[in-house]
Amino acid sequence: MVKRAVNEFVKGLWEEIPPFRLVLGLCPTLAVTKTVENALGMGMAVIFVLTCSNVIVSAVRNLIPKQVRIACFIVVIATFVTIVELVMQAFTYPLYLKLGIFIPLIVVNCILLGRAEAFASKNGVIYSLADGLGIGIGYTLALSALASIREIFGYGTFYHISVFGPSFKPFSFMVKAPGAFVCLGLMLCIMNMFKKK
């Protein structure tokens, strides 16, 4: 049992890492990866919401009638997203201002409903917890990786700390929208190269 739980956790970190392998949740992946700080904030929010909603959905999976399961899942997810939004406003207001609309938009993020429907509604609580944590952390890692590349080349900083010194001319294409697409595309390409081997 422990081994399976560990497997469910680990698969989210590489094998099924959401933006690269499942190619889900791309909207925030492209939008909030200008800086590592934003990416980490977004990642934390997703970890919390995904883990909680996975656990709740799997705990009540036998009580929900089949016909209305999607509606119930969305209610669960939306509840946790709203909690995250309120807590963020109360404790990390500047981050909340930066992430803006993308926090409430976690509700319609495909990863969450996808995990609830494809995994949590068919598996036990502990496996769902492991799955939620794994996928959430994988998502955070992926966002951070993308954000690191974009921030280092686009602003010349990493987590607001200067990397190249003052003589570096920022390559501002990287922090604009096209830079996000190009960067994500290259990363997907690299991931696929690994997969082929």
């Binding site: 009580l63 929900i64 009638p65 209305v68 509606a71 119930c72 209610v75 669960v76 939306a78 509840t79 709203t82 909690i83 309120l86 807590v87 406003q89 109360a90 404790f91 207001y93």
Partner: peptide, 27 residues
């Protein structure tokens, strides 16, 4: 099923909101 789910989540959110309201206003 849907009613009970919504009622529980509504209650929970009302609780969280009242707990964070003062701090949000301050921030």
């Amino acid at each position: 099923a849907v009613t009970i789910f919504s009622a529980i989540s509504g209650g929970l959110l009302a609780f969280v909101r009242s707990a964070t309201q003062a701090r949000i206003e301050y921030q």
